[in-house]
Design a protein around this nucleic acid. Structure first.
Lengths: 213, 213
DNA sequence: TAGATTGTTAATCGATTAACAATC
DNA sequence: TAGATTGTTAATCGATTAACAATC
């Protein structure tokens, strides 16, 4: 079957829809029109309808969208009806913080292990799991069928570690290392470059202050 | 003077240029053409030239771009030639991890203080600074002329805290809380919605596995 | 000077918005 | 049925790419 590729611009908006719908659901709202949602989310009603229709007709003419139904459908599109096992590579401040973050679990992302090359950290506990030495990485990923690896290691080692992960069947990498990973077709990479984000903020602050002068 | 607004798409690419140019500089590369950079960064040479020309002519026909010069110019555009004082609101795992992250300092972002409403955390040290109670927030921001606040608090309190910050002269908010902040014109917000990013990764993994079938 | 490569204009592509017929 | 609102096509807008004249 020929499926049209859905643009990443659309995908990037889905989690935000999911969040708003979840909140509406929790408030007990049963149905919502694209126009009402438009007002809430500050995007055009037209875009909302276009976005949803990439995945099929979730609405009903004259009625709008059923909040609970739409919420679950978007969740399914995002893969949140399944569980995803992940490990963290790099038990520094950020790695440990992410390991301790409980909300991921709520969405089906299961924290399975954490690794570091620093001998002082081996055996320390993070969210009930001991820090493993890097030597165990390959076996662990294979035997536990880990789907996602979170990379919170310095950029100097990130590329090599990513390759080892790919060799052992990882499906996606959530990359916090400040380097571009060039991985084979089919391995998904989602970059979180924190310093890039901070620089963008810095630019926008500066720009506005110059405009003011 | 009439200045054309530069699109956020362009701004988002600047930190990546900055990173590549910094690496080239460290390798001792003196000059580079848009075509060479294109090969390295996997974007079109045309886009590179268009992007740079938003800010004026940094290159020279027949020669290319001087790496060191271009690196510094982009740094200036991003405001990295100035210092930016920031505080962190929320001394949980993520807040403390960001406080301990040294690389921000290298780019001129100066960690000035950290706040939390949990009495057990008050006085604990993060990167040599004590956790302040939330009551001190307003005075601290005003007296120390804090430019940026990093929000690593739950979404339930984020909106109210953001308002207090804005009241006291904050210029930009780096928002890790999973909520949209609607702040007055001129206050810059940069969102880092980690769970959104993770959901996007989940979608892309799923999509690829379905294509394979 | 000839060759290389920018800066910039023009063409293309893709994403967003508007419009409206279909239909609940 | 009449009114509301979707799903979808068409129009617009903006961003990316191509082309090439300017010039180092």
């Amino acid at each position: 079957m020929e499926e049209k590729e859905i643009s990443q611009a659309v995908i990037s908006r889905l989690p935000r829809y999911f969040r708003y719908l979840g909140e509406l659901k929790d408030e007990g709202v049963e149905r919502i029109s694209s126009q009402e949602l438009s007002g809430l989310m500050k995007v055009t009603a037209s875009q909302i309808r276009q976005d949803f229709n990439n995945f099929g007709g979730f609405g009903q003419q004259g009625y709008g969208y059923n909040v609970e139904y739409l919420y679950h459908e978007i969740g399914k599109i995002l893969g949140l009806d399944q569980t995803h096992k992940f490990i963290i590579v790099g038990a520094g401040n950020l790695g440990r913080a992410l390991g301790n973050y409980l909300n991921f679990e709520r969405r089906g992302f299961i924290f399975q292990g954490i690794f570091d090359q620093n001998p002082d950290l081996i055996g320390q506990m993070v969210r009930g799991l001991p820090v493993h030495p890097m030597e165990e990485l390959e076996t662990f990923v294979r035997e536990n069928e880990i789907e996602i690896a979170v990379l919170t290691i310095p950029k100097t080692s990130a590329v090599a570690v990513a390759d080892r992960l790919v060799q052992n069947g990882i499906k996606g990498i959530w990359n916090f290392a400040h380097v571009d990973l060039n991985l084979p077709e089919g391995i998904q990479v989602e970059n979180v470059h924190l310093s890039d984000s901070l620089m963008k903020l810095s630019y926008n602050i500066n720009r506005f202050m110059q405009e003011e002068e």
